[in-house]
Design a protein around this nucleic acid. Structure first.
Length: 719
RNA sequence: GGGCACAUAGCUCAGUGGUAGAGCGCUUCGUUCACAUCGAAGAGGUCCAAGGUCCGAUCCCUUGUGUGCCCACCA
């Protein structure tokens, strides 16, 4: 008996969420063009951070998309043409890596397949798994306009990407050059600085003597990478360093190679580190490369793109770098040049994707100029200055404010962006080389009909592809059709975690200004990262991840959303499951309170602004008005957890615990019965509306039970 | 090496220049009358440490300790 009762009275999200979502989607109201809004209604656009095609839903998505959905649902109810723009990112290296791994299980390497066949495999993968993440996002209840969903390698998107490249090039912002770049020998590509990870490595600092040619003492250098000495073309010391002053300009001998190299003075040298003398390997260290440019030093490449020693390494040729290190050290020891070794901990750069050690090697790459600008088309201001200006002037507001500093600091110390990648999956550069003269090329979206250089060859496209972020940087407008750009660009809000503030947000800002002359959005809101309860990173490989679908399936999307937003106070979240339970209970509370109100208020007048008679009436109405006002202010400044807590407190304690209990008496008395019913109906309705952005399903379910409703969905009710 | 956060109840976290708050957990009591996924009552805190400013500091300042994150070409 008891059990029967509890079963029938509890709210069961499983019974309603799926069908409600289908109804919403069928209605077409996720598409702002279908909303019953006034002609003059303003658009409000939230750009969804593009999930990777390879991705599956994790807690970060739950938090990120829940926040965005609250914002967009609120604006929709406020009468805006609310557009929540979804899409997926081809995620170059990440996707290629996953597909390669899958193929390797079958014993196939991408090189056996060849480029075209491999890319076909990736597309197959994309077709199979690319839609999965979007399906999973629907489970959260996000009201994105799926009819506008784009993929960064869609035909039209690709065209915008290539056009952007051509235009940058025309303006002199893209150039090609031989640079020492961070190279991952396993992935076979260059990586930008943001794609590196550093891990501490216990190693040694070896002191190696480079003997003099004039009978002097020579000089001792300290290094963590002795194998690169084979490519040394100088030794550098600080110009302020008195102990070496006399040596500057002298020629010394590079051991093993027996090469004569000079000692140069350079400001980048710290006289206090090691011996105060740096071996300069322009081909295998970015700083050394720069020193080499300043002193016009030759560059000798001793490590190749597979991470093996080249012919220039003499008898070490063919060895892997770590083998060569041992061999070189043995040789130095034998020859008596290894004077000292001391334990040392340094930060080893590794590939963010595969973890392989990064080898800086010289390579032809394409760059996007960050600070200076060739022409004066835009007042000579470089991309980074434009992005800095956008935030400093307040046209883009970053919240919380301390992230502004992170953004500005990064942009003001920026190097040119290496935008080419030597992988296969991505937008191939719109660069066409003459087959007979590989130095000659044309930059053009379409393949040139004839070669303008040799007049006879079929021009060949560069095998390089663009960095993934080059294309996602265009998302705010390349993700929209031409007509939509007119209607919906610029958008309003970009909500994301801090890890891609510079990787993505900064680049969207200057791309938007460069190509559309306007910043892409006004508000950037950075939320915390979801960690485990112990404060550890959630990751599949560590086994510390939690699948949000588990919560959604078991306790409902509303409960999961509640938990995410409840905990999203700005700091990183140490995820506490108890919050999901609280959300589930809250949904149940709403459901039951609604049941009470509906059954007691049949036929009650719907009054727009009921006036209270009793003290309890007045108290609840005043409180409701105050809560509503604060909710508006706080949602508009992205303080969602504050709003949710106030709504929770208001609904549970003020409305249910207090007013509902008082109403039981008031409903029995003739003098107060009518107004009580009006207020109950009104307060319930208003509460459901305010809670709808946060917990859309249960509030919609309640709305559908209301005897008098003006709209088809609470989703499009007027706040 | 630099920068930014954070340290408050058993746990996860809000908050305030003047008797300290929530969720979960815990204790006691209470089910005909929306909800036991409930209600009522309650226990539980040197607000990290030390110093400073102040009539008064958990809050502001300094220093320290601990934790997390980001940035950096120190070979």
């Amino acid at each position: 008996m008891k059990q029967e009762k509890s079963e029938s009275s509890a709210y069961d999200p499983k019974l309603v969420e799926c069908s409600i979502y289908k109804e919403w989607e069928k209605s077409g109201y996720f598409n702002p063009d279908n909303l019953p809004v006034k002609k003059a209604a303003k658009p409000y656009v939230v750009y969804m951070p593009l999930p990777n095609v390879t991705g599956t839903l994790h807690m970060g998505h739950l938090l990120n998309n829940a926040i965005q959905d609250v914002v967009i649902r609120y604006r929709r109810m406020r009468g805006y043409k609310a557009l929540y723009l979804p899409g997926t990112d081809h995620a170059g290296i990440a996707t290629q890596f996953v597909v390669e791994k899958e193929l390797r299980k079958q014993g196939i390497s991408r090189f056996e397949l060849g480029r075209d066949a491999f890319i076909k495999k990736v597309w197959e993968w994309k077709e199979k798994y690319g839609g999965l993440i979007l399906e999973q996002l629907r489970k959260i209840g996000v009201s994105a306009d799926w009819s506008r969903a784009r993929f960064t390698m869609d035909e039209s998107y690709t065209k915008d990407v290539l056009k952007a490249f051509v235009e940058y090039h025309k303006k002199g912002l893209i150039y090609r050059g031989l640079r020492v770049v961070n190279w991952c020998p396993r992935c076979g590509t260059s990586l930008s600085e943001l794609e590196l990870e550093h891990k501490e490595e216990e190693t040694k600092l070896w002191h190696v003597k480079y003997p003099a040619t004039d009978g002097g003492d020579g000089i001792v250098v300290a290094t963590t990478r002795p194998e690169t000495m084979l490519g040394d073309t100088a030794v550098a010391v600080s110009p302020k360093d008195s102990k070496y002053k006399a040596l500057v300009g002298k020629i010394i001998i590079l051991p093993i190679q027996n090469r004569k190299i000079p000692i140069v003075a350079d400001d980048s040298i710290d006289p206090l580190f090691g011996t105060g003398a740096l071996k300069v390997t322009p081909a295998h260290d970015i700083t050394d490369f720069e020193i080499g440019e300043r002193h016009k030093l030759p560059m000798i490449q001793v490590i190749d793109e597979r991470g093996k020693m080249t012919e220039a390494a003499g008898k070490f040729a063919g060895m892997k770098t770590d083998e060569a290190r041992v061999a070189v050290l043995n040789e130095l020891k034998k020859l008596g040049f290894l004077v000292k070794e001391e334990p040392y901990i340094h930060n080893l750069a590794v590939c963010y994707r595969c973890g392989h050690t990064i080898e800086p090697i010289p390579s032809e790459q394409w760059f996007l100029k960050m600070s200076a600008r060739g022409g004066s088309a835009l007042g000579g201001k470089g991309l980074s200055q434009m992005a800095i200006q956008a935030v400093k002037s307040g046209r883009v507001k970053i919240r919380p404010k301390n992230f502004e500093k992170l953004y500005l600091d990064w942009l003001s110390n920026i190097r040119d962006w290496t935008i080419s990648r030597q992988i296969w999956w991505g937008h191939q550069l719109p660069v066409w080389f003459c087959k007979n003269n590989k130095e000659k090329f044309v930059v053009s979206v379409e393949k040139p009909k004839a070669c303008q250089f040799c007049k006879k060859c079929e021009m060949e496209q560069s095998p390089d592809v663009l960095d993934t972020w080059f294309s996602s940087a265009l998302w705010p407008f390349a993700g929209l059709s031409k007509e939509d750009v007119k209607k919906y660009y610029p958008g309003n809000a970009l909500i994301t975690a801090r890890d891609i503030l510079n990787l993505w947000v900064a680049r969207m800002i200057y791309s938007g200004i460069e190509f559309q002359k306007k910043v892409p959005f006004k508000d950037v809101y950075i939320h915390g990262t979801v960690l485990t309860k112990e404060g550890k990173r959630m990751s599949k490989s560590l086994g510390t991840g939690i699948d949000p679908l588990k919560y959604i399936n078991e306790f409902g999307a509303d409960a999961a959303r509640f938990a995410a937003i409840w905990q999203a106070t700005g700091q990183d979240i140490h995820w506490d499951e108890a919050a999901v339970m609280a959300g589930r209970k809250f949904a149940n509370k709403m459901w039951n309170a609604a049941k009470f109100v509906i059954s007691n208020c049949e036929g009650a007048e719907t009054v727009k602004k009921p006036a209270g008679k009793t003290a309890a009436d007045k108290k609840i109405l005043a409180k409701l008005a105050a809560v509503k006002k604060r909710a508006e202010k706080n949602i508009e400044s992205f303080e969602l957890s504050v709003v949710l807590k106030e709504l929770y407190d208001f609904f549970w304690h003020d409305f249910c615990d207090e007013y509902l209990e008082v109403s039981k008496m008031q409903l029995k008395e003739n003098g107060t019965e009518k107004t009580t019913r009006e207020i109950l109906t009104y307060a319930l309705f208003e509460s459901m509306k305010m809670l709808h952005p946060f917990m859309p399903f249960v509030t919609e379910a309640v709305y559908q039970k209301l005897p008098k409703k003006e709209k088809k969905f609470i989703m499009i009710e007027t706040w």
